[in-house]
Computed example of a mutant assay.
Amino acid sequence: MTGGPGPTQPLADTNPPGGQSQVPPPLVDVVLLTMNDRPEEERASQATLLAQRGVEVRICVVGNGCTPDVVPAGALTVVLPENLGIPGGRNEGALALAELDPPADYLFFMDNDASFPGPDVLARLVAEAGQHPEAGYVQPRLTGPDDTTTPRRWVPRLRAGDPGRPGTVTSMTEGVVLVRRTVFDQVGGWCEGLFLYHEGFDLSYRIWSQGYSGWYAGGLRMHHPLSSPSRHALFFRLAARNRVWVAYRNLPGPLIPVYLAAWTTATALRAVRGGGARESWQGFREGWAGRHEQDRRPMSWRTAWRLTIAGRPPVL
């Protein structure tokens, strides 16, 4: 790990005119991953982050198998000799920021091509967390650059007809999510073995298992390019493998076959239109063969019931 000249400067004036003291703004640690493959998008994304007001931010840019080329002034950098995957890289960034004093109130994980459409979005997201202390994580609505289009996969609930409707959610869209620092540490962070895909399901299950919930601030928007996850060559195999591992890591035994049956059926139906049946089957087999290598901490039946009444039984 290599450090920059220090954390970014506060983005809010904590000493108003007259010298009267004021409560300091919330402290948010932000983790950005890079593989140096989209420098222009990264510069634009970071500019919107640095423009945020009403919060104090500290930034860590993690080079996943590279030395980051685009780093804001004052940010920390972490140089990983190999690509650890998205959850592994995020954990390394969170670990580096944990060494700073004082500890942050929140962690914000942000894709390096996501952007804030206005300077108050992060502060408003933190305010939502303050209004929902039961929520271990809070996330905004993610849209395309047009500020309107929200693919179904970006809405963290089953009923996605109105993507602007806020409410309690049981999953998360990993690319832009605010997590309470104490909760993140309590559950052990992201599952590094997943490497890519469905790590949000795993983290949300772990958070719910600790008695917290999730909150979707559907009225707050962030932007992200409209790309399909299937553009990645490993998508079908890793997505199927990780479904098995998420189930084995988190679900009570009787629910595992129900969950896998539901997702096998859904995958087969999608393969009729989008292909990937062979790779998905390979992933399911790989996941089942490697399930015992996972850290199994099944949720209680009470947590399963809480997830169900919140709108998503943990078999879907």
Rank of each mutant, 00 (worst) to 15 (best):
R53L: 12
L32W: 15
D37W: 01
R58L: 13
M110I: 15
A51N: 05
M35I: 02
V55H: 03
A51I: 01
P7W: 14
V61W: 09
I59N: 12
A98T: 02
P24S: 04
G74Y: 07
S45A: 13
L33S: 08
T34L: 01
A96G: 06
A96V: 08
A98I: 02
I86C: 12
R58C: 13
P81V: 10
P68V: 13
P26E: 00
P16L: 13
L107M: 02
E92W: 03
Q46R: 10
A44S: 11
T67K: 14
G54Y: 09
L107E: 01
P87R: 10
Q20L: 05
Q9K: 10
A96D: 03
V62F: 05
P16T: 04
E41D: 13
P68R: 09
L33Y: 10
V71Q: 08
I59Q: 11
Q9W: 00
A98R: 08
C66E: 05
N83R: 05
G18F: 02
G89Y: 01
A12G: 07
Q9N: 02
L50H: 10
E99Q: 15
G74R: 08
V55Y: 00
Y106K: 06
N36I: 07
E99L: 12
N36T: 08
Y106R: 04
A94Y: 02
D105E: 06
A94N: 03
V57R: 14
V57C: 05
M35T: 10
E41Y: 06
R38C: 06
V78A: 12
V79P: 00
T14L: 14
P26S: 00
D101P: 15
R38F: 00
R53S: 15
E40G: 05
L50G: 12
V71H: 04
E99S: 09
V23E: 15
T34N: 04
L50A: 11
V23K: 08
G19K: 02
V62N: 05
A104E: 06
G88K: 03
R58T: 13
R38P: 12
R38W: 00
P102A: 08
L95I: 05
N83F: 03
T14R: 14
P7F: 07
G63Q: 05
F108W: 11
L50V: 06
C66V: 13
Q22C: 11
Q52A: 04
G63F: 02
G19A: 12
P102M: 06
L97F: 01
G93M: 00
P72Y: 01
D13M: 11
V28P: 07
I86T: 13
P39D: 01
P81S: 12
N64A: 11
D13G: 10
S45I: 07
E40L: 04
N91D: 03
L50E: 09
R90F: 12
E42V: 15
A96N: 02
R53H: 15
V71F: 04
C66N: 08
